[in-house]
Amino acid sequence: MLVSWHYKYRGSPMDQIDPRARWIFSFAFLVAATSTWNSSMLAVLFLIAVIWYSLGRTSWKETRRGWTLVLIMLFTMIVVNTIITGGGAGGVVPEGGQLVWPEGLRLFGKLLKPGLTVDRIWFALCQLMRIGGISMFFILIPYTMDSRSYGATFSKLGLPDKLAYTIELAIRFIPSLARSFSITLDAQRARAFELDDVKGGIVRKIGRIAPLIIPVTMNAILSSEDIANAMDLRGFGQRKRTWLFELKYHWWDYAVIAFGLLIVAVSLILVYGYKLGAFTVPPFFYQLFQ
């Protein structure tokens, strides 16, 4: 089994931004986007997300897998829950509102009375901008952030060394554990272990995975003692750790961080200071359905 990271150096503007600045900006965006349902604010944030995403220069082919997951989520959230059943609009969109088909909708000779309102369609657009914007920020990460940088990044962001090193160590373990899994799978198949055509209920099917999971897990646990001893002998945790992956802020990183903080500050002022965060439908949108 080949386990590989999706990151590759593209020489894109995103490659030049310090990972710390990227995390700070991404979380600043998350705070700003989740603070409001105001469509104008969400439109501005969505535009920022589009620009940010384009800086990564990733192709659709590369990111298709991640987007498929997001599209399924968006479909469930928006089409099924907000538009068809109206569930997702609860709590944000007020009850009632202008019906899209006040006279009913004739479909295959039958007159249907769908409860879809103009407000709920507008809310679906707001959801699309909000979830789409957040997705653009966070889908980009595996494709544009070097996996070697995670430990150093989180350590420099203030995470305790032990925790940051745990992340670093986990990343290093992945290839050897993937190899161990592959060998175990081959060995079990050589013993006529059948995974692909199991009859029976879910419990039986899950039970079939045990001959794979148990040996891999136990081998990993047994080897961990040696690793821990080796780390102790080298004085792990006795001093502040240094990192092979060097991080250095440039002026543009400070600009990215400052812009992120500005987005949060402006959003919170508009939402809590000027009370502009509530969901409202612009009058022109009502007129479109009259």
Partner: peptide, 18 residues
């Protein structure tokens, strides 16, 4: 401690791989 760091890292890597 050190042992927990290694167990946590192995657990995380195992979870990811599996």
């Amino acid at each position: 401690g050190t042992k927990q760091v290694v167990y946590a890292a192995i657990g995380a890597a195992l979870y990811a791989v599996l």
